[in-house]
Simulated assay, not measured.
Amino acid sequence: MKQVVLASYAKGNPKASDFRVEDVGVPVAGEGELLLKTLYIAVDPLIRFSLDETVLSGTARMELGAPVIGPTVSQVVASNHADYEVGDFVEGRTGWAEYTLVAPDKSDYRGPPRKLDPALAPVSTALGALGGPGQTAYEGVVNVGRLNAGETIVISAAAGAVGSMAGQIAKALGGRAVGIAGGAAKCQGLLDLGFDAVADYKAPDFADQLKAALPEGADVYFENVGGEVTLQVLPLLKRGARMPMCGFIAYYGVGMEGPGPDHLPGFYRQIMAKGLEIKGFAGIFAGQKGLDDIAGWMKEGKITFAESFVDGIEAAPEAFASVFSGHSHLGKLLVRVAAEG
Results as ranks from 00 to 15, higher is better:
residue 145 G to H: 04
residue 288 Q to L: 11
residue 122 P to F: 11
residue 203 A to E: 04
residue 292 D to T: 12
residue 92 G to S: 14
residue 142 V to C: 04
residue 91 E to T: 08
residue 329 H to Q: 13
residue 126 A to H: 01
residue 285 F to V: 12
residue 100 T to E: 08
residue 37 K to C: 08
residue 100 T to S: 09
residue 251 Y to F: 07
residue 126 A to Y: 00
residue 268 Y to F: 13
residue 169 I to W: 02
residue 158 A to P: 09
residue 278 I to L: 15
residue 253 G to H: 05
residue 190 L to N: 07
residue 172 A to R: 07
residue 317 P to E: 09
residue 180 I to Q: 01
residue 193 L to W: 01
residue 186 K to E: 10
residue 262 D to C: 10
residue 174 G to A: 09
residue 27 P to L: 06
residue 317 P to K: 10
residue 117 D to M: 05
residue 104 P to N: 03
residue 54 T to L: 03
residue 307 E to T: 11
residue 128 G to V: 04
residue 77 V to S: 10
residue 249 I to H: 03
residue 136 T to G: 13
residue 209 Q to Y: 06
residue 323 V to N: 08
residue 89 F to M: 03
residue 127 L to A: 00
residue 319 A to N: 05
residue 100 T to K: 00
residue 19 F to Q: 04
residue 339 A to L: 04
residue 79 S to L: 14
residue 251 Y to A: 12
residue 247 G to K: 01
residue 322 S to L: 03
residue 194 G to E: 05
residue 325 S to H: 15
residue 156 S to V: 07
residue 199 A to L: 05
residue 225 V to M: 02
residue 89 F to A: 03
residue 43 V to A: 15
residue 306 A to Q: 12
residue 277 E to I: 09
residue 156 S to P: 03
residue 315 A to G: 04
residue 267 F to G: 04
residue 293 D to E: 15
residue 44 D to M: 13
residue 168 Q to D: 09
residue 271 I to D: 00
residue 9 Y to Q: 13
residue 187 C to I: 11
residue 295 A to Q: 09
residue 215 P to K: 13
residue 28 V to R: 14
residue 219 D to F: 01
residue 264 L to W: 13
residue 319 A to M: 10
residue 152 T to V: 12
residue 38 T to F: 05
residue 120 L to K: 14
residue 173 L to E: 06
residue 229 V to R: 00
residue 37 K to P: 07
residue 16 A to N: 06
residue 158 A to R: 00
residue 191 L to H: 11
residue 217 G to K: 00
residue 316 A to F: 08
residue 35 L to H: 02
residue 28 V to H: 12
residue 2 K to E: 13
residue 329 H to K: 15
residue 226 G to N: 13
residue 152 T to C: 04
residue 47 I to Y: 00
residue 172 A to Y: 10
residue 339 A to N: 13
residue 45 P to Y: 09
residue 257 E to Y: 07
residue 301 G to P: 06
residue 294 I to K: 03
residue 276 L to M: 08
residue 74 S to A: 15
residue 311 D to E: 15
residue 49 F to R: 12
residue 303 I to A: 11
residue 132 G to W: 01
residue 66 A to P: 00
residue 221 Y to C: 08
residue 174 G to F: 12
residue 137 A to W: 02
residue 227 G to H: 02
residue 307 E to F: 03
residue 323 V to A: 02
residue 230 T to F: 12
residue 61 R to Q: 14
residue 174 G to D: 10
residue 75 Q to E: 15
residue 79 S to W: 14
residue 54 T to G: 08
residue 308 S to F: 03
residue 164 S to C: 08
residue 41 I to M: 02
residue 234 L to K: 02
residue 80 N to L: 05
residue 14 P to A: 01
residue 92 G to D: 06
residue 332 K to F: 11
residue 182 G to W: 11
residue 175 G to F: 11
residue 164 S to H: 07
residue 5 V to Q: 15
residue 244 P to Q: 10
residue 209 Q to P: 06
residue 292 D to L: 05
residue 54 T to K: 15
residue 243 M to H: 09
residue 119 A to W: 00
residue 7 A to K: 15
residue 322 S to H: 08
residue 151 E to S: 05
residue 9 Y to H: 14
residue 338 A to K: 09
residue 237 L to V: 11
